[in-house]
Design a protein around this nucleic acid. Structure first.
Lengths: 241, 241
DNA sequence: TGAAAATCTTGATGAAGGTCAATTATTTAA
DNA sequence: TTAAATAATTGACCTTCATCAAGATTTTCA
């Protein structure tokens, strides 16, 4: 059987720096960092800094803020609400990632989202300012378009995975992806979120995650070193589960 | 309990006309129809017509075409391939919808897609032409961005549904959505695809679709009139399943 | 640090739905 | 229009995984 391609493990883009001042929001993130220095300066003037404590919620469906948020430090967890109100973790934003589709679109896009913070500092660009820039510098739109296309691809891939693979396979693919992204020399990687969150992300329960990891260990694919750190013993095997 | 909001039933946008000439591809579709007449004329010059017979495949992962396709007549079914190669129906394009992300982006977006035709005529804009227009007329990018944002929202919603709702609920929500979109005076609607396709779209099997429809009928929520036509007897009930 | 809270693990059980197989209905194309 | 192909239905069975519960471990923060 052919070796599988890997799916995404919840990282939206790799950006390991810890952003210093709120200005670096602009100069370091992909959607702006291709601009000329003067153009970035112009945008920086409109940027405001903000920070959130753990557990705070930036916005929810009923309470739409209309700004674009760029993560400076910390993480933002983005949940989507299903029709019956159950929530699924769809993405975790790391420094350099952005959110706030409300700022980008007019219509009825303002629903079914919730976002939770983990001691985060962000840069904020208000809707009106952003709209100006989009028209003035078309290349920003193209960058955002690229980002959206990438997210869309990722989301559809995940949907297809939900539709066609069983939980065990989804977990195995997730582990392989995480391992692939960390490329630690020790042959190990760290789970990027709690098993509770992971269960939400993969559409299963913490109990099942526990059990499947135990199974995978028993079958010799992985070895659990600590709670969060996992050693991969047989990557190819993982990808064929 | 609160009445649920509806999810999408596979239509990307409502566009009932049957497009006549290939020129109307430009003047009728949302991503172009806001332009000035001269601008549309300019784009029309670069448009080529093409048609496909049932079962043909426009492109696949390994064989990326690099054009933007706008559906003129017929339908295009878009499948996504999971990591293990199983495919899921993710979207059905109707006249006015477009596809061909390859034309829009540079990098490694060219994978895991397949598209199948049903006697379709399409308009084709080549990548290089399109790139010119995007830079020349920024508003096209904004329109495409809006379309992508909408698809992304839809896709994430569907992912959340897969992650949190059981098959029975997904089917019920799908029926309610279809009914909502058709608004037939008879209280009925027509399933927009075969049950085989529907099973693929909803991540289940044709057998389960059959059984669940029978259940829903027995419980008095719906009545199957013919193979494809379904009468809705209790919409609110459907939404609470 | 140490107590409280949160998370994780493991077991027992049951429900939901997938698979296989046989039959019936519908669609396609000659 | 009819034969062949495809799709849909129904039944029997069985796998997967969610749920509930109880205990162990890790994390938090006073």
């Amino acid at each position: 059987m052919e070796k599988r391609k890997l799916s995404n493990c919840g990282h939206t883009h790799t950006c390991n720096h810890t952003v210093g001042s709120h200005k670096s929001c602009i100069s370091l993130v992909p959607i702006f960092n291709h601009l000329e220095v003067e153009q970035m300066d112009e945008i920086m003037k409109t940027v405001q800094a903000a920070s959130f404590k753990k557990g705070e919620i930036i916005y929810q469906a009923e309470d739409p803020s209309d700004s674009l948020y760029i993560v400076n430090q910390g993480k933002i967890r983005i949940y989507r609400l299903s029709d019956s109100g159950k929530e699924q973790l769809v993405r975790i934003l790391n420094p350099g990632d952005f959110t706030g589709e409300h700022a980008l679109f007019s219509e009825s896009m303002h629903e079914s989202y919730a976002e939770a913070m983990v001691d985060t500092s962000v840069c904020v660009i208000r809707r009106l300012d952003l709209q100006d820039f989009l028209l003035k510098y078309p290349s920003i739109s193209l960058k955002i378009l690229e980002e959206f296309a990438s997210r869309l691809k990722q989301s559809e891939k995940q949907t297809a995975q939900f539709a066609t693979e069983k939980v065990e396979t989804r977990i195995a693919l997730f582990l392989a992806e995480c391992y692939d992204q960390e490329k630690s020399s020790t042959g190990t990687f760290i789970l990027p979120m709690s098993k509770k969150d992971l269960a939400s992300y993969l559409g299963t329960t913490p109990e099942t995650i526990s059990r499947k990891l135990a199974d995978l260990e028993e079958q010799g694919y992985i070895k659990r070193k600590t709670n969060k750190r996992i050693e991969v013993l047989n990557l190819d095997g993982l990808l064929l589960i």
